[in-house]
Amino acid sequence: MLRQAWLVCVKDVRMEFRGKEALNAALAFALVVLILFSFAFDPTSEQIREITGGLLWILFAFSGVLLVNRSFAREQSNDCLDILIASRVPASALLLGKAMANLVFILTVEAVCLPVFSLLYNINLFLLPQWLLLVCLLTSWAISLLGTVFAAMTVNLRLRELMLPVIVYPMIIPALAGAMQLTNVVALGKPPEGDDLIWVRLLVGFDIIFTALALGLMDTILVD
């Protein structure tokens, strides 16, 4: 199953990096929002430090949904999803492969946006790079996984571009809340400790529970 998931992931990454349709749209959206907000706030203000986590993770959640929206739509143009299901590729391998590919895309957007944010808002986010990486990985996996599951559920809907965000955002609120808190702490140059570690545990627990649920339910979602 892992081998098939890896093959699906490599195929999706290759296809997206070749066309860059969703990636360009998500990157352009994220950068425009960052630039617009930089005009709205005073770069020396302490206020910016307080909204750093909120601004960044709302931005990544929005651009992440733009990316995952293409996930199963990519399979639709020539009925490729039917071929994969018919050839008995496990639904869990499809989900895992597509979620891994989406993780790569979301991390790519973050890798571009985080330095731009530091530059525009005069906040060094890279004082504790290992903690920043951990928060990005855990939260991006949550966005990617739930986004991919709901992208599978909404792939045949005419209003899927509208429906997907409406369903995904409420579901990822716990993960986003944790990521916002931890990013604010990391932006101060302090490693998370004491009460802050609850948010790390929340992110880890969220990822484990939803990964297990999604892998178990994917077959039901894709068939019928």
Binding site: R14, S77, N78, D79, C80, I83, A86
Partner: peptide, 14 residues
């Protein structure tokens, strides 16, 4: 099992 449906079942980007 292998299926040949109405769509050709191959990826245009590859």
């Amino acid at each position: 099992v292998s299926l040949l449906g109405h769509g050709i079942g191959v990826y245009d980007e590859l």
